[in-house]
Simulated scan of single mutants.
Amino acid sequence: MRKVLTICILGLLSACTGKESENSEPKNILENLSYSVDTVVVDSKGEIINLKYGMNWFDLSPDSRSLFIYDYNQTLFQEIDLDKMVLSNTYQFEKEGPNGLGRSSNFQVLPDGTLMIPTFPNSGIYNLQGEILSRINLNPEDIKGVDAPNPFALIYEILFDPKTEILYSLPGDFINGVRDLAVIDSKTQKGRIVKLPKMEKAENFKIFWNSDTGGSIQTENYTLEQIDDKLLITCTVGSGIYVFDTKTDSLSYVDFPHQLIPREKTGEIQNEVSTEEDFFQELRKVLSQVSFQELIWDEHSSRFYRLAIKSFVAEKKGDPTTYETYLLAYDKDLKLLGESKIEGLDQRLSNYFWKDGKLWSYVNVEDELGFAVFTFNF
């Protein structure tokens, strides 16, 4: 009742102030952000949940009630009931043979409870008994209209729309770090590549070290998400996002008037280096700038939320990296609603998701699967 009364009073005030309200600056809803954190641990029922690689390969069910983790070493999926916080099922798959997954790591939980598992050359839709229901050909040489640099390119950030049987992914050159949008009809084996020019500046921030003594590469990360009939494409290089409307087959770009943090990375970066020392010197320049993470839709609040992270790599090898993390909020039409630094958070959140209006982030609790659950107040 108190919330309804507040809205009514605000409405009257707005009506009285007239043009003054119309011209006022939009309010930052996160201006007075505070939060609390609870740690919850999954009851594994005596089974082992392999955390050797953390929670690197996971997906949520469309209703956000279950979380699926893939154990690459044992080729099995484990289902976590997030409401009861218990390991509810383990599904054993095969790596070789007619139903074999091959070298799979990425996967997508579909609304009917099946899994879309993209591998090369064994991509397909599988049931939870490990049986392949239908094959999906992701060999670029067989798909008319798609030119990809290598056989694995189409698997990056791949999504399958079961209503249309259209596949979407972000292929690109691994070395230069630039991605495009691929739209593929899995039935006709026809597709096309859609360029993302405003994100091509990601190439300016790649760092490539290759020598006889070692090597490494740093590139910006892209993400692809589907919310109803819209695809959202983000890149850590800047705040702007591409929106691809799957109904109208149209692409648009949205940028945001961030005030608290820069909208994109800037500066000169040496893209190719010959020593490890030079690699880390350039890496510090890139990571100390803000990296915009993916937008995640929260059904509970009907908002998009996003994290933006600055990472400060220590000068001395072995010293810990420190972080600054920012929370950003947007409405359903991608209007910026607020931005705030998450004070006191000195660690990087990993493998996180939103559920019931709260941010859940993976933590290892004495080799048991756990989550730090953030409740934000504003």
Rank of each mutant, 00 (worst) to 15 (best):
E272M: 13
R303K: 15
L251Y: 01
F292H: 13
L287C: 10
S350M: 12
L336E: 06
V273Y: 10
R348Y: 08
A329D: 05
S250A: 13
L334P: 04
K341D: 00
F280M: 09
F312G: 03
L334T: 01
L260I: 12
L283W: 13
V243W: 02
F279D: 08
S274T: 15
F256N: 03
V254F: 10
R303H: 15
D298A: 10
E268P: 04
D249F: 00
R303C: 12
P257S: 09
S252H: 07
V286S: 11
Q289S: 10
A329Q: 08
E268C: 03
E272I: 13
A308K: 07
L260V: 09
L337G: 03
T266F: 13
S340C: 05
K316D: 10
S301V: 07
L283Y: 15
P257Q: 08
V286N: 11
L334E: 02
F304S: 05
R348S: 09
E276S: 14
T246H: 04
F353P: 04
L307M: 08
T246P: 00
F279P: 11
I309Q: 10
G318K: 02
Q293W: 11
L328I: 14
E324T: 09
A314F: 07
L336P: 00
P262K: 08
N351Q: 14
L327P: 05
V273P: 10
F312E: 02
E268N: 15
V254L: 13
L283E: 13
S252D: 12
G267Q: 11
W354A: 03
V313G: 00
E343W: 02
Y323W: 07
L307S: 05
I309F: 01
T325A: 04
I296Q: 14
L287R: 14
S311A: 14
V254I: 15
L295M: 12
F256V: 04
G338Q: 01
T322W: 06
E315V: 04
Q259P: 01
S288H: 12
D245I: 00
F292A: 06
K310F: 01
E294K: 15
L327Y: 05
V290I: 15
N351W: 14
G318F: 02
E315Y: 05
Y352D: 11
E294F: 06
H258V: 12
S250W: 05
D319S: 12
Q281S: 14
H300F: 13
Y305P: 00
E294N: 12
G344C: 02
E343V: 11
K265V: 09
E324D: 14
V254A: 06
E277A: 15
R306G: 06
I296R: 13
D333R: 05
G318C: 01
R348W: 00
Q289K: 08
Y305D: 02
K285V: 08
I296G: 00
H300Q: 14
G267F: 09
L349D: 07
T248I: 02
F292C: 06
K310A: 06
S291V: 06
F304N: 09
L349E: 07
Q347M: 07
I342C: 01
V273G: 11
